[in-house]
Design a protein around this nucleic acid. Structure first.
Lengths: 226, 226
DNA sequence: GCTATTATTAACAAATTGTGAACTCACTAT
DNA sequence: ATAGTGAGTTCACAATTTGTTAATAATAGC
C-alpha cells in the first residue's frame, strides 16, 4: 500500500526519537532515511535526494539551521520540503528556522500524530499546486482554475467539497481512492468526520452530474470511470 | 550500502551446484557464503548474518527444513529470507518447507536463470512491498491500484476478498500457498473462519475469471498456474 | 473401492453503502 | 437585529453487496 512513494530523511541525534519517527513514517507508507548528525544529514540528502527533510535543530556536527541554509544554497534543494524539530517554546529557533527556509516546524516533545499530520499536510499542499490543468474526459470537463464543471458543454455548479471530490477522483481515472485517502486529501488528516459524509458528497456529485462516472468499490473506496 | 551489497548463504552438499550458484550470484553482485551441510549452514549463518539463505532440502548433518526451523527460532533470523532447493515434484518437501517458514522454493534441477530471478524478486519485494504494481501474465492482468482484473482485456469485477485472493496467488505464480498462509495473509492471524470459506472464494474467482488458472494441490493448498 | 479432501450450492449473516431529512454554522439580505 | 440561504455534516434506516456456513455431491490419491 504505497500511494505515497515519497522519500523522507530524518536527522536527530536521539536514537529513540529517530526510531519512533522512522516507525511512524514507514507505517504511513514513506521511504525513510535516517541521519544522526548534521554532516550525515547533508551527505545523505545529497545522495538520496529526499522529498522532505526533518531536521532536529540541536545536533552535533552542524545544527539543523546550518544544514538547512547549506542545503538551500544548492539548486537541487530549493524546492525540497524541510521541517524543523525544536525544543518547546524556543521562539528564537522558530524564527531562525523559518528564516533559513524551513517549511514548517514541530515542537518537542513530539507527538507522532501531530508530526504525521504536518508531514502529510505539506505533501498535500505540494501536490495541489500543479492542479491548474483542465481535465477533459469524453463529454466531461473539469476546470480547476474557473472552478467549473461541464457535461456535454452544459455548465454544472458544484459546491467546493463536491468539486474537490470529483477533481480528485478524475485526476486519476480508474485509480481506486480509499476512503482514508479521500479524507486526508480533501478534509485533511486531523479532521474527523463521520463515515457517511463521503457517501453523501459522492451522491451529490453523481446527482448533479447526471452521468454515472463514479464507481464504488465496496470495502475499498471509489474510483472515477466513465 | 550499494544497490546490491547483499549477503547470501548457499548450503548444498553437491559441489557442482554450489559452484554454479555461487558463480551466478557473484555475477549478479551479491556477496556469497557457502556451506556444505546443515551444521555448517547454521554456524555460518550466525556468524555472517546473511540477508538471504538458500538451503538444499537434502543435506548431511541436518537437512534444510531442520536448519530453517532452528534459524526461525532465533529472533535475529525471523526476517531473513529463505529459499529451499527441492527435488522436482517432491510435494511433501514443499509443504514442510513452507510450514517451517520458507519464503520460496525452487525445484531441482536448477536453472540459474530461474533461481536468480527468484532471488532478485525476493529482495525487490522486501524493499518495497507496496503491492501496487500491475501483474500481467499472458492474457490476465491484475491492477491493485485500479482494483481491476482483466482477462483478454475484458474487465472483470471481483469482490474485495476475491481480488485479494487472486492477487496473492498470482503474485508468485507456481508457488503453492498453504491454506494457513492464505488465511493469515488475507484474513489475518486472529480471524477464525471455517475451512470451506477459502474454497468458496476460490470457486468464485475461478467462475468469474472463466479461465483455469488456480490449481488445487490436494492436502496442501492452492497455486496460481496459467 | 475407500477415505480424506475439495467443489458446489443455496440459505443465511454481516458488512458496507445509499438515501432523505434534519441540524449547524457562517454569511447575506431584509 | 432578524430571517433567509446554502454548504457541510450527521443520523437513522433502507438497500445492496459481500462473506460465511452448513449440507451435499464430487473427486483425487491410496
Amino acid at each position: 500500500m504505497d500511494p505515497k512513494g515519497k522519500k523522507i530523511l530524518i536527522a536527530d541525534d536521539e536514537p529513540d526519537i529517530l526510531e519512533i519517527i522512522h516507525y511512524n513514517l514507514v507505517k504511513e507508507g514513506y521511504e525513510v532515511i535516517t541521519a544522526r548528525d548534521g554532516d550525515e544529514a547533508l551527505t545523505k540528502s545529497k545522495i538520496h535526494k529526499p522529498d522532505l527533510i526533518i531536521l532536529d535543530i540541536m545536533m552535533p556536527r552542524k545544527n539543523g539551521v546550518e544544514v538547512c541554509e547549506l542545503l538551500r544554497m544548492l539548486p537541487a534543494f530549493k524546492e525540497t520540503l524541510i521541517i524543523f524539530l525544536t525544543a518547546l517554546n524556543d521562539e528564537s529557533s522558530h524564527i531562525k528556522g523559518l528564516e533559513s527556509g524551513a517549511d514548517d516546524y514541530v515542537s518537542k516533545p513530539i507527538s507522532p500524530k501531530v508530526l504525521m499530520s504536518r508531514v502529510n499536510a505539506l505533501f498535500r499542499r505540494l501536490h495541489k499546486e500543479p492542479a491548474d490543468t483542465k481535465i477533459k474526459i469524453e463529454n466531461l470537463e473539469i476546470d480547476p482554475v474557473k472552478f467549473e464543471v461541464k457535461v456535454d458543454n452544459n455548465s454544472i455548479i458544484l459546491a467546493k467539497k463536491e468539486f474537490e471530490l470529483l477533481h480528485l477522483l478524475a485526476s486519476r481515472p480508474g485509480r481506486v481512492f480509499l476512503r482514508n485517502e479521500i479524507l486526508s486529501q480533501i478534509w485533511g488528516n486531523d479532521v474527523i468526520v463521520g463515515d457517511r459524509t463521503i457517501d453523501v458528497h459522492i451522491r451529490k456529485v453523481r446527482q448533479k452530474l447526471g452521468i454515472d462516472c463514479i464507481r464504488t468499490v465496496k470495502g475499498v473506496g471509489y474510483k472515477f470511470d466513465l
